[in-house]
Amino acid sequence: MGVKLGSLFPSEQISFKDLHDRIIVIDAYNVLHQFLATIRQRDGTALKNADGKITSHLSGLFYRSANLVQNKIKPVYVFDGKPHELKQETIDERNRRRLQAEKDWKDALEKGDTAKARVKAQQTSRVTEEIVAQSKTLLEILGIPYVQAPEEGEAQASYMVRKGDAYGVGSQDFDCLLIGSPVLIRNLTSSSKRKLPGKKAYVKVHPERIYLNQTLDKLGISQKQLVDMAILMGTDFNEGIKGIGPKKSLKLIKKNGNIENVISTIGSDEAPTFEKIKKIRSMFLNPKTTDDYELSWSQPDEQKLVYFLSEKYQFSEKRIESMLKKFEPIKEMKKQQTLF
C-alpha cells in the first residue's frame, strides 16, 4: 500500500514532546490495517471475544489513542469513503492475494509451521464495514473526533492540514505528501520496538517528521513532478513500470520534466495511457474533500466504555481502568479555549 518514497525523503527523528498540543490527523484505515495485521496470537489468530468476533482493532485503537492523549497529542481519525473507480483494480488484486494468504495460512497451521502461519495470517487482515463501525463507536465513547472522507482518507487528512486545521498527517504511507500535506508524522506508535517482517528481530522506532516543501527543494522537483514520479513507480491507482524505483524515477522526471515525456522517451508498453495519467494526477492534486467536520475532544464516557469493551468484547475491567487514567490530559486540554 502507498508509494515507496521513503528512501528519498529525509526524515527527522522527533519525540512526542515535539507534538505537544498539536492536532494530528490519522488515516484510520492505515492504522486499523496495522492493528489487524500485527495484534495477533503467535500462530496468527486474531484476538477474538467469546463469540469469535475480532477485537484486535479495538485493542489497538484504544491503546494507541490513550497513548497519544497521554502525551498531550490531539488525534483525529479520518475514514475512507467510497473508493475511486481507478482503485478498483488494486482492490481486486488485494482481495485475490488475501484469499491466497488465507489458504497458505491454513496449510501452514496444519503443518505446524507457526512462524509462517503468523506471516500469512497477517496478510489476511481486512478492514470490514463491521470493523469500521465498531471503531467509530469506540472513538465516540472515547471522546475523540473522526471525519468521514468523501473518497480517500489520506486526501481528506492532507486537506485538513493544508487548511490549517491540523498540524500534520499521521500515517506510515507517503501518499499524503503527494496530496500536499506540508507535514507527515510517521511511527506514531506507543511501543518503541517494531518487529521486522518475517524475522525474529526487532528494531527501535521513533516518531519521525517529514516536511514536504523542504523535501521537494532537496530533490529539486515540484509537487506535480513528485506525483509524476509516483505514477512511474506505481500508486494505489496504477501499476508502475517494472524496474523503476525511487531513484531512477527521480532521475527520469528531472531529466524529462514530466511523466509524459519520460514515457515517450523510454517507450514502455506497460505505461499507463496519457489519459489515465491525467486522471491519476488529478486524484492527487485535486482530490475530493469535505469541510463537513467538527474537531472537539471530550473525556471518555467511562460507563459506556466498560460496557462496550468489557461486556461485549471481554476486555479486562482493570486494564480499562488503568488505560482511562491516560485520558486525563483531555481535562487539561479542555481548559484551553479557542478563538472561534
Partner: peptide
C-alpha cells in the same frame, strides 16, 4: 495566521 488549534491569531 491562526494556529491549527485556533488558540492564537
Amino acid at each position: 495566521a491562526v494556529d491549527p488549534a485556533h488558540v492564537a491569531m
